[in-house]
């Protein structure tokens, strides 16, 4: 610590100090005073981010036992392991705000907290593993790199570690697709089919359009979020189009074209009704994803109880030993 925060007397001063810290682009840390709304927004966002990592293990985890080469199997194991690790960092970051991991897990399995809409889509073919790496991790990077400068310190620091690993996954996903595209006709068709299924859901990962995004204004004012949904979506499209060309696949959007004037790509409108349905729980895999998480949690209860009981016994024994 250097000088540390000044000693403040009145609530107005706390608020002023908070606002000034944000304005100076300095970080808010767990012991700092913060407005309740800031705390609540952050808990919600970080928890949903953590839940997304954990639920996100499922669509790819589906393919661990069927991966068609040992190398791909090893890559998948490592990726799913990283995702569990990301979930752990993020739950820790949420806990610095006074949330409790067990409570957040309850909220997830009771449907009171959400996770990324994208993980409610199924992975019927192995190409989906590559496309998830390319699109979904690519979109996550667009979203998350700016979060490395988020105003809340623990969140920003978690994102630095996570982004490094995500970009590694993205490259691996793209590399799988390149291998498949230089393979058999069946493999190429599998890739194109997967691209067709995942493109629009990936654009929806950035959330609703700006004029319809209730939490954005506050998040941007507090510098939790750095860019609007539409801006990030545009960046993703601009980044992905040349990659698609290089790969030799088409993106399923007849309105997609380069706009010379803007120096950016124009593209069609995602089906926002579909996004609303998926967010409200009515997507293709919502029920099964949450059910699987619930089952793992419930079936694991006796294991967690055993660990707690054992730890308590060990503590009691140590105290007894010390007393003797």
């Amino acid at each position: 610590m250097n000088d540390g925060p000044p000693v403040l007397a009145a609530p107005e001063e706390y608020e002023e100090y908070f606002e000034a810290t944000i304005a100076r682009d300095q970080r808010i840390e767990p012991r700092d005073w913060m407005p309740d709304g800031y705390r609540r927004t952050l808990i919600r966002q970080i928890a949903q981010h953590a839940h997304s990592e954990i639920i996100g293990m499922q669509p790819e985890g589906e393919w661990i036992t069927r991966a068609p080469s040992l190398r791909r199997k090893a890559i998948l194991f490592a990726k799913v392991q990283d995702e569990a690790g990301h979930g752990l960092y993020l739950y820790s970051a949420a806990e610095t705000l006074g949330a409790d991991r067990a409570d957040l897990t309850e909220r997830l399995i009771e449907g009171r907290q959400k996770y990324s809409s994208i993980f409610n889509y199924p992975t019927p073919t192995f190409a989906d593993v590559g496309v998830i790496g390319w699109f979904v991790d690519g979109a996550a990077i667009c979203n998350q790199v700016p979060l490395c400068r988020s105003s809340y310190g623990p969140y920003a620091r978690a994102m630095v570690r996570i982004c490094k690993e995500e970009s590694f996954h993205q490259r691996q996903g793209y590399e799988l697709l390149r291998t498949m595209m230089s393979g058999t006709d069946a493999q190429r068709q599998m890739v194109q089919d997967s691209v067709n299924r995942w493109w629009w859901p990936s654009l929806m990962m950035f959330g609703p359009p700006d004029e319809n995004s209730p939490n954005s204004a506050a998040s941007m004012a507090w510098k939790i979020k750095r860019h609007s949904n539409d801006e990030l979506r545009q960046r993703f499209v601009d980044m992905t189009v040349p990659q698609a060309e290089k790969l030799g696949v088409t993106l399923p959007d007849p309105d997609l074209r380069w706009n010379e004037e803007r120096g950016r790509h124009d593209f069609g409108t995602p089906d926002w009704d579909e996004l609303m349905r998926v967010i409200k729980g009515d997507g293709p895999c919502n029920a099964q994803r949450v059910e699987r998480r619930r089952t793992a949690h419930e079936e694991g209860a006796w294991v967690r109880e055993a660990a707690a009981a054992h730890a308590a016994k060990q503590t009691a024994r140590a105290q007894q030993g010390a007393a003797v």
Partner: peptide, 22 residues
């Protein structure tokens, strides 16, 4: 051990079992 992915009783075990499997 790969069959445990997404089914482990605690997140720490998701990491541990995948690590051993790897």
């Amino acid at each position: 051990l790969g069959e445990w992915a997404g089914h482990a009783p605690v997140l720490e075990e998701e990491v541990a079992l995948a690590n051993i499997a790897l």
